[in-house]
Simulated scan of single mutants.
Amino acid sequence: MVQLGIDRLLLTAWDWKARRIGFVTNNAAVTSNFEASRKALIRNGFNVVRLFSPEHGLDTTGPDGHFMGNTMDNLTGLPVVSLYGEKLAPDQKDFEDLDIILIDLPDIGSRFYTYLWTLTYVLEAGARYGKKLIVLDRPNPISGNLLLAEGPMLDEVNAASFIGRWAIPVRHSCTIGELSYYFNIERKIGCDLQVVTCTGWRRHMFHPDWSESFVPASPAINTFETALLYPCLCFLEATNISEGRGTAVPFRVAGAPWINAGELANIFNDNIKTAVVAREVDFVPEVGRYAGNSCKGIMLHVTDRYQFHAVKTGLLLIKLIMDTYKGRFEWAPYKTLVNGKGENHLTLLLGQLDAEDFFKLPFEGFKEELDSYVSNGNWRERVEPILLYED
């Protein structure tokens, strides 16, 4: 049985429970019994006085990349300071009357999922304003198996952004608690940091190994399969191909009105024969790219999650579509609050300068270079000192 950080916190008698607590969280942060973490804290006598929310807002329903304002929490009656609106980081006024900052956010294991980067801004604010931070850890839903970690490593000089501030792989295979320690040490942040670890979790485990029910982390990350495929199909955001936003299966499908579904499914299955299968589908997005239009394409089904290399698969899919539909495929901008013009989105997703140039290689050369391109370098060695869980 896996106990989450929030579960273990609630079972411990802390001498600071009555002090003024700020809590960085959202609706996807729940106990093992699916009670909202913030409600459980207050019910158990923790003096939470202010909430902070990441992208998508406290209720996790805000559209991707949209401004989220400050609000009041209907569940607790507490004020909520948005960290994806007027500012990305807490300021001195937010922290000056607080004694302890708790953080409980559900990361999904991919570098471009922004809750992790909200955490980094809170770490820096904690150091700047002299506040103790306590991170309530959660398992990585797509496992902590470092053999499945995939790059490229982010180029901080040329490709840093709010979907990747610092040099980690695309699929990092760490927990949010482990990365808290890693950043605090590696970046010399100097925050007074504590992580309340999980128990019962091992690095090889995926979400279905410890829970039958996946709590949606945001509007488009609504199932475990979606989280597993997110580091595969999120790159489609930088193209004129729909990744399924506005459907019941976001980040599980890929299509466009001009694609031949059967043709693409056959090409995919002929070239990618391990751990994943494509089947032809039609879908109509309600919002986003091609809203209201019938898209033809494929749905991916992971047949062996222990062998599935998401990033490599996603990049190879784009190359297959690009070469098959020359003249129709295009790179496209992706506008968000933190990238108002949506420029260079592939560079920011991959964390590599001029990322589109890699796809100009002939197909056979692309395949030969792909393993090297998605290498995570010496990531295992770099994080080994801060790993909190066994293989």
Rank of each mutant, 00 (worst) to 15 (best):
66 H>A: 13
165 R>I: 03
134 I>D: 09
153 M>Q: 03
2 V>Q: 08
200 G>E: 12
386 I>L: 09
83 L>W: 13
27 N>A: 15
280 E>G: 12
175 T>F: 06
293 N>T: 11
293 N>L: 15
53 S>Y: 05
329 F>C: 06
321 I>G: 09
389 Y>A: 01
68 M>L: 02
216 P>N: 03
238 A>Y: 09
390 E>K: 07
1 M>V: 15
137 D>F: 06
79 P>L: 06
109 G>Q: 14
11 L>R: 15
44 N>F: 10
319 K>N: 10
319 K>V: 00
188 K>H: 14
181 Y>K: 15
332 A>I: 05
243 E>I: 03
101 I>E: 04
188 K>E: 15
336 T>Q: 11
228 L>V: 13
109 G>T: 08
30 V>A: 05
360 K>A: 14
1 M>I: 15
328 R>M: 14
216 P>F: 04
365 G>F: 04
15 D>T: 11
146 L>I: 13
196 V>M: 07
21 I>E: 06
292 G>H: 11
348 L>P: 08
260 N>R: 10
229 L>K: 08
191 C>E: 04
356 E>S: 06
167 A>V: 02
164 G>H: 01
251 F>D: 05
140 N>S: 12
152 P>M: 08
319 K>F: 09
252 R>I: 01
245 R>V: 01
66 H>I: 05
324 T>H: 01
116 L>M: 12
5 G>H: 10
391 D>R: 09
146 L>N: 04
83 L>V: 03
205 M>D: 06
348 L>H: 10
309 H>Q: 11
164 G>C: 10
358 F>N: 02
9 L>N: 00
34 F>W: 13
128 R>H: 03
163 I>A: 07
65 G>W: 11
57 G>I: 03
297 G>E: 02
189 I>N: 12
103 I>R: 01
334 Y>N: 13
351 G>N: 00
165 R>N: 04
36 A>H: 15
384 E>T: 10
368 E>G: 01
102 L>A: 02
367 K>Y: 06
247 T>V: 08
54 P>Y: 12
213 S>I: 13
158 N>G: 12
9 L>V: 08
122 V>S: 10
116 L>H: 06
3 Q>R: 15
142 I>T: 00
175 T>H: 09
342 G>Y: 08
213 S>L: 04
164 G>Q: 14
243 E>T: 00
374 V>A: 02
153 M>G: 02
379 W>G: 04
109 G>R: 00
280 E>T: 05
363 F>R: 13
286 E>G: 11
264 L>R: 12
58 L>Q: 08
353 L>N: 06
99 D>C: 10
120 T>Y: 15
375 S>K: 06
21 I>M: 07
30 V>K: 02
71 T>K: 10
14 W>F: 15
